[in-house]
Structure formats: structure tokens, C-alpha cells
């Protein structure tokens, strides 16, 4: 595994959290009343929201609509994820 910087480490945690949510989402599509599935989704949803808040405050927006500056359009100030080291 490559050595990750702080930004990459936080992105990994967001990806892990979003992956748990994506898996739970598909599972719940076919098991919409599963109590365990719903609790799992809720737990990871709170985690994902906290991690994304931390990331956007430190490193800039993950969606265009999160751009929030009077000085510059933040969406174009940060690299896209296909560049090496940006995912």
C-alpha cells in the first residue's frame, strides 16, 4: 500500500463509509423492512455526513453546490479525481 497523506486518508474513510451505504442501499431495495439493514444504514449515514463535513471544510467541495466563497468559484480550484493521488 502507498503511504497516504492526511487528505487521502480522510478520502479513504469517506469511500469506506459511502461503500457501506451503497451496499446497504441495494440490499434495502430488495429487503425494505429489514431492521438490521435499516440500523446499519443509519449508523453509516451519520458517519458519512460527519466525514464529508470535515473534508469539505479542509479540502474544498465534493459537489459543485457545496462551493461557498465570495472570492472564487471553489469547484474549479480543486483537482478532479482521475488525477493520480486524487482518489
Amino acid at each position: 500500500m502507498p503511504i497516504l497523506n492526511e487528505k487521502q486518508k480522510l478520502m479513504r474513510r469517506i469511500q469506506q463509509s459511502c461503500f457501506a451505504l451503497a451496499e446497504a442501499n441495494l440490499y434495502l431495495d430488495s429487503h425494505p423492512t429489514c431492521k438490521m439493514g435499516l440500523a446499519y444504514f443509519k449508523k453509516h449515514k451519520a458517519e458519512k455526513e460527519a466525514l464529508e463535513k470535515e473534508y469539505t471544510e479542509k479540502y474544498g467541495p465534493l459537489t459543485a453546490i457545496q462551493s461557498d466563497s465570495d472570492k472564487k468559484w471553489e469547484w474549479v480550484a480543486k483537482p478532479f479525481p482521475w488525477e493520480r493521488g486524487e482518489s
Binding site: P2, M11, R12, I14, Q15, C18, F19, A22, P61, L62, T63, A64, I65, K78, F80, P81, W82, R84, G85, S87
Partner: peptide, 13 residues
């Protein structure tokens, strides 16, 4: 849809 500036899983070649 709304685009998110991240990959679902990292790619660093």
C-alpha cells in the same frame, strides 16, 4: 443526478 468529485474506489497507477 449530481456529480461527486470522488471515485467509488481509489485508482492510483
Amino acid at each position: 443526478w449530481q456529480y461527486e468529485k470522488k471515485l467509488q474506489y481509489p485508482v492510483n497507477i
